[in-house]
Simulated scan of single mutants.
Amino acid sequence: MLLQSTMEALRQLKLPAMAQALEEQSLLPQTQELSFEERLGLLLDRELYARDQRRLGRLLQVAHFKHNACAEDIDYRASRGLDRARTASLIQCTWIRQGQHLLITGPTGTGKTWLACALGLQGCRQGLSVRYLRLPRLFGELKIRHGDGSFGRYLATLAKTDLLILDDWGLAPMGPEDVRDLLEILDDRVNRTATLITSQLPVSHWHDYLGEPTVADAILDRLVHTAHRLELKGGSLRQKRECRDTAKVDPS
């Protein structure tokens, strides 16, 4: 009876994992050999773990990553210029907490988006908020929010995000309004929150891509000069995987 009352009290205190762990302990005779402090420590560990998992789930739901990628699966064997030591430093996520930027460039298929998602997941694992957005879709979303009056609120939400991933930079043309909106987004993030950009365009071509010289100068000043850079090389990893899969199927 006392056990049931204790578990109910734990649930009322919003400690459901701790209540479940207590019930499990009551069914395991070996736990009776543990001291009170040891049993309490196990209960607290279960609750902390459950809370961490719930928080991670919420962060992942908001992040909306394109790929289910993680740092443990990064492939360093492909000849694409990915330095293991430098990548390991980025995986620590210090650059995110310090509000720094990361630019990942390289030809199509070299794994830019996958790597960005892996680094974003690592940030979520450390309790940091992340949002993944394809730049062409972002501009479409901003046009809608200009129309319905929610543009300012949306900018405030993006500004509070610890890491904003902007994928496919340079894939589609940008109009003057798009360039100005991008400046607003990046200006809110300077020295406060981190931005990760992936692009097929070399950084040296970004000024021409942005089109408006004055605004382009302002954007690149906020984004490029002190950013970390990863320049991936080589052919498409997707094509290589397809060739391997075909070779496995075709016995000739």
Rank of each mutant, 00 (worst) to 15 (best):
L48E: 10
K66D: 05
F65M: 11
R54L: 13
D73H: 12
E38C: 04
L59V: 02
A63C: 02
A71T: 11
D52H: 13
R54F: 06
L59Y: 00
L42S: 08
D52A: 07
L60K: 09
L44Q: 07
Q53D: 06
R58P: 05
L42K: 07
G41Q: 14
K66A: 10
L43Y: 01
G41N: 14
L59H: 00
R46F: 01
L42M: 15
A50E: 05
H67L: 12
Y49S: 15
Q61E: 14
N68T: 02
G41L: 12
R54Q: 12
E72P: 07
L56K: 03
C70E: 13
D73I: 00
A63E: 04
D45V: 05
L43T: 01
C70P: 04
C70Y: 07
L60P: 08
K66S: 09
L44F: 00
L60G: 05
E72W: 07
L48M: 09
L44E: 04
A69H: 09
Q61I: 00
E38N: 08
E72Q: 14
L60A: 11
L60Y: 04
G57N: 11
K66P: 04
E47N: 10
R55K: 13
R46I: 05
N68S: 14
E72L: 08
F65A: 10
Y49G: 15
Q53P: 04
L56W: 08
A50Q: 06
E47G: 09
F65H: 01
Q53S: 05
R46A: 14
R55Q: 09
N68H: 11
Y49R: 15
L59D: 01
H64G: 10
R51S: 08
E72A: 13
Q53T: 03
H64C: 13
L59N: 06
E38H: 06
D52M: 08
L60I: 03
L48A: 11
F65P: 05
L43Q: 01
L40V: 00
F65W: 00
R58Y: 00
L60V: 04
Y49W: 05
H64N: 15
L56H: 06
R46H: 08
E47M: 12
L56M: 04
L42P: 03
D73E: 14
L56E: 02
R54P: 01
D73K: 15
R55N: 10
L43P: 01
A63Q: 06
E72R: 15
K66H: 12
